[in-house]
Design a protein around this nucleic acid. Structure first.
Lengths: 333, 333
DNA sequence: AAGCGCAACTTACACGTTTAACCCGTTGGG
DNA sequence: CCCAACGGGTTAAACGTGTAAGTTGCGCTT
């Protein structure tokens, strides 16, 4: 099945065809600075490369330069939804415009430790969501990986773009509900422990928002994606005088809405609900879900800029603007 | 910021420390067949490697062997949801158990053509959803890529695992509705052209199911994710005598449910609905959504086996069993 | 007219592996 | 007693690229 007879076409083939040395081919194709090549030679090399369908071997190039143009993104094993998908798609495009290639690796429990992975790819940078151990970080540094970033997680001196926007999200939820006149808020926390890294900064943002608006701290309840259990939470909230809840994301928000219906009540009159993400089905909820959406394209562009700067050894660009998050107002709040 | 002074530790360092040659190190670490190494030497090499934290350079290995252990998965630019996410996570694990590494690349329009990408990674195999051009396939073959598979797309002689399961999905929807006594079915087709590659096989499966059950062909309507437009579709279906619809996926199904409510009707009494995917919010729908779910873990394992076989030059394993898909019965049908 | 600088190349080495080919005891069989 | 076989290694040649360090020939200055 797999034809193994055909040999790879190398820069030596191109050189032979163009009647020049291999070095010249390399200089032309990479247009190396401070190297002068006559127009005629350059043309012949380009033509030869094109007609042979020459593709430089990344392995050889990486071996030689010690650095590849691959940016490795390590995904944790929690469920990845359409927002992460959109972020990755935009990130891929933004990196591509900078000459970098995104490779995503979805981790899983049966996987080898990630240490195995960056060894294999020799990436220029590694993006992760969870924190690395100190040993891993030094090992990567030693192997020549330029940048190692954990995007969310416990607060640290370094600017963490996604972490920042998570706080903004939570804060915006609180502000929106306060603006509608609600004074006693609830917070619907996800049932999945693996989501803690995302959920905690969002909750922290909501708490900040409450303080700013002069409201009491939110009543936090864990809400699984199950109508019956959600109904219990709804009843408890109402007993505590809560009139509106911020949900961790749209899925949890829809669980709360299902709980409201199950309890024989109506949103938003009995309980207002606001989610996060604006997933496609948010507008199809009963009632249509008010939510906070993030401009993933903008975040991706900024992230790509940060990565590029780090690789080039330049300082990080200005922090991501606050207007990447905004409220999509529908009927649930 | 990035420390560049530390040199990478190579197999020569390990050899020096263990007092053997580089070749011996290689033989020990790969435990090459037909090479006999004494227990003492092996131990010393292993110890040295561990204490130095030796990590073989993938670039050098790939360059030498001409083949890497990376399996590249090219994602199209349509929205990737949690099902694709789950499939990739499982696939990553299944490949890891076979010593292969999954790298996912989310494509985007501003991206370089994919041809640029496999050059960069020198993967052992390439998985894609959409079809490749003939030129691209031959180019990859020439560069030493073992396997090139398009997972869905127009029917072809070769077995396409995902394609197959998409047909099964559509068929199962029709069978379930027929089993409930419905005789006139509708099909809710997605509004996004990019989903055609998935939607067409599903619809084909539903058509087959209708034939098998002795029903008329389904009434196909495109349903965007918008309650008002969905309500029009619902009205039209009812006028045509349709009592149940198969939806392309759970999102479209929830649009239909929203349309039913918007039209002042009730599911499932006025119109039964069945979706595909069992996304997390399916059980939170009003009413909770009956849907067809796929055992992504099983599909992933089978896919990994196919890839492994192709790389080793062995024939593909037995086709994926039919029980990877099953109906999750809730209240909407 | 000698020398200098520069455009336009070429030569040659290094990157870190894998692996075929070779080498040197020791041992067992005929 | 000699040769083959084998265990336990070593040597050296690739793999395809980037790039520092030459090497020409030619036009210009002084």
């Amino acid at each position: 099945m797999a034809e193994r007879n055909t040999k790879r076409v190398t820069s030596a083939d191109v050189a032979r065809m163009a009647g020049v040395s291999r070095a010249t081919v390399s200089y032309v194709l990479n247009d190396t600075p401070h190297q002068t090549i006559s127009a005629g030679t350059r043309g012949r090399v380009l033509d030869a490369a094109a007609s042979l369908g020459y593709a430089p071997s990344a392995a050889a190039r990486t071996l030689r330069t010690g650095r590849s143009d691959v940016v490795l993104c390590l995904l944790p094993d929690w469920p990845i939804g359409s927002e992460v998908g959109a972020l990755l798609t935009h990130l891929s495009g933004a990196l591509a415009r900078r000459g970098l290639t995104l490779a995503v690796h979805p981790a899983s429990r049966e996987d080898r430790p990630i240490s195995e992975l960056w060894k294999v790819l020799t990436p220029a940078a590694v993006l992760a969501f969870e924190e690395f151990s100190f040993a891993e970080i030094t090992a990567m540094r030693a192997a020549g990986v330029a940048l190692v970033v954990a995007l969310v997680g416990p607060a640290r001196p370094e600017p963490r773009e996604l972490h920042l926007s998570q706080r903004l999200v939570g804060r915006l939820q609180a502000e929106h509900l306060a603006g509608l006149g609600h004074t006693r808020l609830g917070y619907a926390y996800p049932d999945d422990d693996r989501l803690r890294y995302f959920a905690d900064p969002r909750l922290a943002g909501t708490r900040e928002g409450c303080v700013d608006q002069g409201l009491a701290q939110p009543e936090v309840r864990t809400v699984p994606l199950d109508p019956a259990t959600a109904a219990e939470a709804v009843t408890a909230w109402r007993a505590a005088g809560v009139t509106a809840v911020c949900a961790y994301n749209d899925e949890v928000a829809m669980a709360v809405l299902a709980g409201v219906r199950r309890a024989g009540l109506n949103a938003p009159v009995d309980l207002a609900v606001i989610g996060v993400d604006d997933i496609p089905v948010a507008r199809l909820a009963e009632p249509p879900l008010t939510t906070v959406t993030t401009d993933q394209a903008a975040v991706a562009v900024h992230l790509a800029g940060t990565v590029e700067a780090a690789i080039a050894g330049r300082p990080a660009p200005a922090p991501v603007p606050a207007d990447v998050v905004r409220v999509v107002r529908r009927e649930s709040a």
